[in-house]
Amino acid sequence: MFNKIAVLYGGNSPERKISLISGYTILNALKKMGIKAYGLDTKNFPLFLLKKNKFQKIFIALHGKGGEDGSLQTILEYLNIPYTGSRSLASSITMNKFITKTLWKEYGLPVYPHFFLKKNDFYKKNYLEIKKNILKLNLPVCVKPNSTGSSLGVSKVDNINYLLDAIKKAFIYSDSILIEKYIEGIEYTVSILGNKTLPSIKIESIYSLYNYKAKYIDTNTKYFCPSGLNKYKETELSELAMNAWNVLGCSGWGRIDVILDKKNNFQLLEINTCPGMTPHSLFPISAKKAGLSFYDVINEILFLAK
């Protein structure tokens, strides 16, 4: 039985709003389970006091910078307090989409062509030269911040005249961006708990891009679990997700997003080492299909904390 747990949420990242919802949901579940849990907003709580308050374990419900990028994990490792999710190195790697895809590609895992751009280089170099390199990918392309989640600042560009605006928008959220070939196909997500995958989910959105609005606002977005894949494709997807997870040294729990392209091949999109746990979140949907209640999931994530 867990005696004293701290749920860390909020913070200063652009994903603060989602983190607060996730944190409150987790905190309420822990209290209903009879666990002495305390919610702490890292925006105004000094982390060094965690040791002084003698918390047995830390449940991280922070999304984005300052919570999912390895910085918090490094502090908790220094304080020697067990915490949920991946370790500091894996967290810092997965927060960086470019490094993540570079490692996946090195290990022969499927990723679509992409172009990496730093803000400093963008303002120093000739934009026409940058545009020429991006056009090698062939339109449409997807422009996204390199180190932000929840699809904030992400744009699909079909017309080269809109590329500059999309790049500037992405730079609002990150000092580096990733421009990749837009993959037309069906989006799936695979949740991982411990060393096992949970049933995959097919995502159906009215938008050509599964963006922030589709994730958190629009009620027309549909989630199918089971996903409708045949058993061979489901097995293939599960194995791909586990390989992508293990290559990056992830642990605890997380989620991997994938596209099934028009040639019936899976392409890795990105990885999330601290998935949302809001009423709209996908991790609990997968867990429920696997026979796990929300309380079961929270208990298992805490058990895996080290």
Score class of each variant (00 low, 15 high):
Asn265Thr: 06
Asn265Ile: 00
Phe266Met: 05
Phe266Thr: 01
Gln267Ser: 12
Leu268Tyr: 01
Leu268Thr: 02
Leu268Lys: 04
Leu268Ser: 02
Leu268Trp: 04
Leu268Val: 00
Leu269Trp: 01
Glu270Ala: 01
Glu270Asn: 03
Ile271Gly: 00
Ile271Tyr: 00
Ile271Glu: 01
Asn272Lys: 04
Asn272Thr: 08
Asn272Phe: 03
Asn272Asp: 01
Asn272Pro: 06
Asn272Tyr: 03
Asn272Met: 01
Asn272Glu: 05
Thr273Arg: 00
Thr273Trp: 00
Thr273Ile: 15
Thr273Phe: 03
Thr273Tyr: 03
Thr273Gln: 00
Cys274Pro: 03
Cys274Tyr: 01
Cys274Lys: 13
Cys274Met: 14
Pro275Met: 10
Pro275Gly: 09
Pro275Tyr: 02
Pro275His: 01
Pro275Val: 10
Gly276Trp: 00
Gly276Leu: 08
Gly276Met: 13
Gly276Asp: 08
Met277Gln: 11
Thr278Trp: 04
Pro279Ala: 14
Pro279Gly: 11
Ser281Ala: 07
Leu282Cys: 14
Leu282Lys: 08
Leu282Asn: 14
Leu282Met: 13
Leu282Ser: 08
Phe283Glu: 01
Pro284Gln: 13
Pro284His: 10
Pro284Asn: 11
Ile285Ala: 02
Ile285Pro: 02
Ile285Gly: 00
Ile285Val: 13
Ile285Asp: 04
Ser286Tyr: 13
Ser286Glu: 14
Ser286Gly: 14
Ala287His: 09
Ala287Gly: 11
Ala287Ile: 09
Ala287Arg: 05
Lys288Ala: 14
Lys288Glu: 15
Lys288Val: 10
Lys288Tyr: 15
Lys289Gln: 06
Lys289Pro: 00
Lys289Ala: 08
Ala290Tyr: 09
Ala290Asp: 08
Ala290Ile: 06
Ala290Phe: 14
Gly291Asn: 06
Gly291Pro: 11
Gly291Ala: 15
Leu292Asn: 05
Ser293Met: 11
Ser293Gly: 10
Ser293Cys: 08
Ser293Asp: 09
Ser293Leu: 08
Ser293Ala: 10
Phe294Met: 15
Phe294Asn: 14
Phe294Cys: 07
Phe294Asp: 14
Tyr295Gln: 15
Tyr295Gly: 04
Tyr295Val: 10
Tyr295Lys: 12
Tyr295Ala: 13
Tyr295Asp: 15
Tyr295Thr: 13
Asp296Cys: 05
Asp296Asn: 15
Asp296Ser: 14
Asp296Trp: 08
Val297Ala: 10
